[in-house]
Amino acid sequence: MTHNSTSTISVARAIATKDLRIEWRSKVLVNQVLPFAGIVMVLFAFALDNDGILQRVAPGLVWLAVLFSSLIIVQRTFAIESADNALDAIKVAGVSSVGVFLGKSVALVVQLLLFECVLVLLSLVLYQVHLSWGGAVLLVTVSLLANVGLAAMGALYGGLGAAAKGRETLLPLLLLPAVAPVLIAATRATESAFRVGGATLGEGWPWVALLAVFGALFSFGGTLAFGVLTEE
């Protein structure tokens, strides 16, 4: 009588499509998160009102703005599940928790990528950093791989905190320390992409490799842990 269980890939596709459709319709990313990140970057510029310092720390500022804003994006991703208790409905439907994790992660990667495109453009204007074609290639690779790590940890801890009391404060406490390695590696690689402090492009690629390792580890760990943590 009951339907046969659907594949993990089908579940992931359904979850990712649904999340992106909701974001497209509600425009929270465009109307709220982007302005927030823009304000943070402008405030950084005011606080470090010296061209030399700003250019030197620009990579770190960009990734800090990404990190803070990603907290809002992750919270939003799971708030839509708890608004009408859809999270319970998903659990009761007995669908693959790996599919849910992957779908959430993919939707987060796409949102973060679009978001970072705007932030990088903003940093070119506000912080007056230089970006060559080679630097742009490095930066796109860094963004892709860093987002995989951020999204995997975001989906894991967002899911864990979704049903918890005080989830708004719990998420930063869990997520920020966990993604610190991604922040460090992404910042170092971006320093090379922006040629900050005499850094060369070649110095950035080992950090990219490290980001790939983090992304793979976090995704694998998240795949294993998501079901167990969210079920309990």
Partner: peptide, 13 residues
Amino acid sequence: GMLGHANGLYLDL
């Protein structure tokens, strides 16, 4: 299949 007090729907869809 369960229908609780909440409907389990996505409000923006």
